[in-house]
Amino acid sequence: MKKKPLLILLVLPFSLFLISHTVPFFYGLSLSFFSPTGRFVGLRNYLALFKDQAFWNALQFTFTYAGVVAVVMTILGLLLGIFINSLERGQNFVKSILLIPWAISLTAWGLLLQIALSQQFGVVNYFLLQTGVIKERLSWLGDPSLARVSVMLARVYKDIWFSALLFLTARQNIPPELYEESTLSGAGPWQNFWYITVPLLRPAILYIGVILFIFALQDFDLIYALTGGGPGFATEVVSLNIYRHGVRYGNYEYGIATSVLWSLIILGFTGVVFSPLQRRIVE
């Protein structure tokens, strides 16, 4: 009697995912040993990939991007969350607007930042000139190193509020009695921060940081909409690289070989960094 619900509850819905995603993935794996004309070429696609400087650059930028985005969003989000928690008035108002940037899709956000970061007509350059921060208009999206900074800033600016909301909730789960006691025994706000808030929030900090990093590794939408991976390939991440070879150039086998290598890298990374955390989530 108990077997039947399990079959329908677990096996059926889960196999929907396996059939629509995991099976195609393995079909792709088999295709990655062929040339576009259907000739078996063994590991040649993979060997070409190892020599492909554009792929290694994309890989490097993906990890830099995800690392910077995750670290900045975690630290600033934590500080913002604690600040919002300390507000006596206006806290509910702030909470209600924090989700507005989160609601804007990364695609629309990318287009909006194309407008705002435009070298000649953008509002960002205008404000920075007016306030005297810069002397001449910066080419936010045209200069390769500046464009890398721009996509990271764009990403952080959009979802830092969301990260703050997560930390705000975590902070409000700390029992207020702890602070009352420590204040009674003479601790100041900084001591409270370092000896109560930070240690108690450590699990949340770790958890949110890792999740933000994992999701930032997958980013596609914003970079595609904002720079398209340019100028040149300066801001190309691995997902854009795969999309470019496959959908745009029609070189599916090569793109799939890249996908396979990319999933192996993620698998390895997950195994090393994510699994201690995983265990905690499972248990």
């Binding site: 079909y27 997958q218 996908s259 999933s263 993620i266 997950t270």
Partner: peptide, 14 residues
């Protein structure tokens, strides 16, 4: 943790 992009090309072909 596996990025969506790894499914795109095989799904496209199928």
């Amino acid at each position: 943790t596996l990025p969506w992009v790894v499914y795109v090309l095989p799904i496209f072909i199928i």
